[in-house]
């Protein structure tokens, strides 16, 4: 079947989708957006977290067909999403470009940098905070955590530690023991507070 939805502000179309395919699979394997991760595919780890019409969900548990017509934000679009939010609603150019074909999307690769380190890449505050606080080790949980943490800070700019833990309780990390993830979210909240 064919599915259409908007990912990170761009209309996307995928053809020949098997009806049992998850949104996660379509993002990763058909649209060239492998940032959302496939750690458990049973909704237990949160590494595939995306925003579906604004709401954080496990994309592994959304049948691709269910996302028809939806607006999706993945980790790849998080920086731009945060930038537009910081600009205020409608305050900035929403850079509405034409859609990317499946082929184009598959050829997608690192962009906006002069080397593979991603230097010069514009990051969302939560992304920068994860790097600065040492919250990234293997990084496999990172995309889902970033989407979840960013959404929490949007709702709750001054979270207590218990608030952070509750909001991120659906995102497993196996490397860090979560301490530096806590540091990162506190750091992003503090920077957000200073910037406000």
């Amino acid at each position: 079947m064919r599915v259409n939805f908007t990912v990170n502000g761009r209309p996307q179309q995928a053809d020949d989708v098997w009806e049992g395919e998850s949104l996660l699979y379509v993002l990763r394997e058909r649209l060239g957006l492998p940032g959302s991760k496939n750690a458990c595919e049973q909704g237990e780890c949160g590494s595939c977290t995306v925003r579906l019409d604004g709401v954080p969900v496990c994309s592994c548990l959304v049948a691709a067909g269910q996302a028809e017509g939806s607006e999706i934000v993945t980790v790849e679009g998080l920086a731009e999403y945060a930038r537009q939010r910081a600009c205020g609603t409608g305050g900035c150019d929403t850079s509405a470009e034409c859609g990317t074909s499946g082929d184009e999307a598959r050829r997608w690769s690192a962009h906006g940098t002069d080397s593979a380190t991603g230097e010069g890449t514009e990051l969302a505050p939560i992304q920068q905070a994860f790097i600065d606080a040492g919250a990234v080790q293997c990084g496999f949980c990172t995309p889902g955590l970033l989407v979840a943490a960013d959404e929490m800070l949007e709702r709750n700019p001054n979270p207590t530690d218990a608030d952070i833990r509750e909001a991120l309780s659906g995102n497993l990390c196996r490397c860090t023991g979560y301490e530096k993830i806590m540091d990162a979210v506190r750091l992003a909240a503090a920077r957000q507070g200073e910037g406000a």
Binding site: G20, E41, G43, L61, A63, G65, Q66
Partner: peptide, 18 residues
């Protein structure tokens, strides 16, 4: 989808129609 998709992802179920 929080039940059905787990069963599909883990190949426990192949319904004729979703």
């Amino acid at each position: 989808g929080t039940d059905v998709m787990v069963e599909i992802n883990f190949d426990h179920r192949r319904p004729e129609y979703l």
